[in-house]
Simulated assay, not measured.
Amino acid sequence: MAEGIVIDGIYIKEINKKATRKGIVIVCKYVENGVEKSVRDNQRLVERFEEILKELKFIGIRNLELPEFLIERIIITGIELKWKDEELKECKLLGLYKAPHSIPIETKFYSWIYQSTNEFGYTENDIKLLNEFQEQAILYAKGVREQISLIDIENKAFLSEHDVMKSEGTNND
């Protein structure tokens, strides 16, 4: 069995991106040093987290045994993990199916065994992606969110201004 990802005594039980009347909410259920906790937040996820959600669509299509041309109809919103004695046993993808001319339908993909040696398990590449996703989820549980760096904004403004001055033929060094 795969061990799953545990960082600083934290492992993820579920992380899911949900649409509510007030906007998008991230629900993260996790265990920290044996204590179950949860976070419900509307702050944006880091960019890599969003990229992984998009990559998980291919696993979702294979999991549901759908033809690949339906890939655009699948939206992965998160994962639910089943642990036993701090060992990861199963992983279920959570998401939506966008039916034509209808609102998206919530879809719970069936659980697959979290090992690459089982016929109904994930591949090695799937597990690498799911492990990275768990790492990102743990960072979210620890408070890491997408942030705008004021230093980057100031530097971009300075560089843009400096480039304009160069193109005008002036240099105020």
Rank of each mutant, 00 (worst) to 15 (best):
E36D: 10
R73H: 10
L45G: 02
E14Y: 07
E51N: 11
I153G: 01
H101F: 10
Y30I: 09
L94D: 02
L88N: 09
I10R: 02
V6E: 06
G60T: 14
K82M: 04
T123L: 01
V25K: 14
K37M: 12
Y140Q: 05
I15V: 15
E135D: 07
V39S: 09
N16V: 13
K17Y: 11
Y30G: 09
V6Y: 01
Q115N: 11
R48C: 01
I153E: 14
S167A: 10
R48D: 12
I153P: 11
I52H: 03
V164R: 12
L130T: 13
I26A: 09
C28L: 14
V46R: 13
I5R: 08
N33D: 14
D173H: 03
K166H: 08
D126P: 04
S111N: 04
I105T: 13
S38K: 15
K84F: 06
G78N: 06
K166Y: 05
L139H: 05
E135C: 03
T123V: 04
D173P: 01
R62Q: 13
I127S: 04
D163Q: 06
E106V: 15
G95A: 08
D126Y: 00
K89F: 05
E87P: 00
I113R: 07
V27Y: 14
K17V: 03
L150K: 06
I113P: 00
Q134G: 01
K54G: 13
K57L: 09
G34P: 07
N42T: 12
R62D: 15
D41R: 13
N16Q: 14
E55L: 11
K142Q: 13
N33T: 06
I26Q: 13
W83P: 06
I103R: 15
N125G: 00
G95P: 07
N118E: 11
E124Q: 04
N125P: 00
I75K: 14
I5K: 11
V27D: 12
L159M: 05
D8W: 04
K29D: 10
A19M: 15
N118T: 03
I113M: 02
K82G: 00
E90S: 00
A141Y: 08
F133P: 12
F49Q: 03
E161N: 12
I138A: 03
Q134W: 01
L159C: 04
Q136W: 05
C91E: 09
D85C: 00
L70K: 13
F49I: 03
M1V: 10
